[in-house]
């Protein structure tokens, strides 16, 4: 019974947070452009309805099975990501002993499904988006591995609940200050937003989504938001103590912290320009990755 209750709770959480991100996006761009937002709360729903009413497009000889599966799997992967996180001390959907390894697998499989989404349309712009994404998605994964391993050191465990419990005294965000910023970059990359939007950017006319319309596009856009939510939820648990907090019940703390991380993610995605994929690849390997080495050494010395 419990898995079903928790699944329903997490799906509702993902839907709600997707709506929240869409609202934040609208408010943030309106503020940056200096104009009043348009129906900020309802606009995301209107857009969903538009996509649902649209015809689903086809191209010449697409790989239809993978084209339709990719958005669904992408959303499903986001679901398995949040499933690792406990709502409170007792209620965790997937109490995996090796939670952060599964999270790594989620990242790797995300690269696969985004590639499939771009590949399946049989269109040049989609292909460019797919291949670019792989170039960035793969090395970014290494950064997240370092960051999560660093968080596992003081917890002496790879399970997310144990990592949360290890933060009763001090949150990881203070103990390991480089971790959260590096992990947020990973979040932008996993849902390809802002400076990390190499898959679906406007210069390739929507990239992997350039040929997609109607409900498949709705699922795809939802999956992107769900993945961002999953990143924020894991970040809130690994760096901000998850459900830990005074006065309020645990789940409330988790939701609040996730919402705060999402706010930072949305801000970042609107704030930074995108550099060419070639230079981003160099930047990841020569700056961000050495930075995560430093982070690991820091965390290691501190944990002894």
């Amino acid at each position: 019974m419990t898995p079903i209750v928790l699944t329903v709770a997490w799906v509702a959480f993902l839907l709600g947070m997707a709506w929240y991100i869409a609202v934040l996006d609208g408010l943030w761009s309106a503020a940056r452009e200096g104009r009043p937002p348009r129906a900020p709360l309802a606009n995301p729903l209107y857009r969903c309805a538009t996509m649902l009413r649209q015809q689903s497009n086809l191209t010449e000889a697409p790989d239809l099975l993978n084209w339709r599966l990719a958005p669904a799997l992408y959303a499903g992967l986001a679901g398995t990501g949040v499933a690792l996180v406990p709502f409170s001390g007792a209620s965790v959907l997937a109490d995996l002993e090796v939670g952060i390894v599964w999270w790594g697998a989620v990242e790797a499989l995300t690269v696969v499904v985004v590639f499939l989404h771009g590949w399946s349309a049989n269109s040049q712009l989609g292909l460019i988006g797919a291949y670019r994404y792989v170039a960035i998605g793969l090395p970014v994964m290494l950064i997240s591995m370092f960051v999560l391993i660093a968080a596992a050191l003081p917890a002496e465990s790879l399970a997310v609940p144990k990592i949360i419990e290890s933060q009763r005294e001090l949150w990881n965000v203070i103990r390991q200050p480089l971790g959260l910023p590096l992990f947020l970059l990973l979040g932008l990359s996993l849902s390809f937003r802002g400076p990390f939007n190499y898959a679906d950017s406007a210069d390739i006319a929507g990239g992997t989504a350039a040929e997609v319309s109607g409900a498949p596009r709705l699922v795809w856009e939802f999956a992107r938001l769900a993945m961002l939510t999953a990143v924020a939820t894991v970040a809130a648990s690994v760096f901000l103590g998850g459900y830990l907090g005074p006065w309020l019940p645990g789940p409330v703390w988790l939701v609040l912290k996730t919402a705060a991380v999402l706010l930072a993610l949305v801000g970042l995605s609107h704030q930074l320009a995108r550099i060419s994929p070639s230079r981003m690849m160099t930047l990841i390997w020569t700056v961000l990755l050495p930075l995560s080495f430093v982070h690991l050494v820091w965390a290691g010395v501190l944990a002894l």
Binding site: L6, T7, L14, A72, L73, G79, L93, A94, L96
Partner: peptide
């Protein structure tokens, strides 16, 4: 747990 949520969403 993993399969329940994955299956539901997919």
């Amino acid at each position: 747990g993993l399969f329940t949520i994955m299956g539901t969403i997919v």
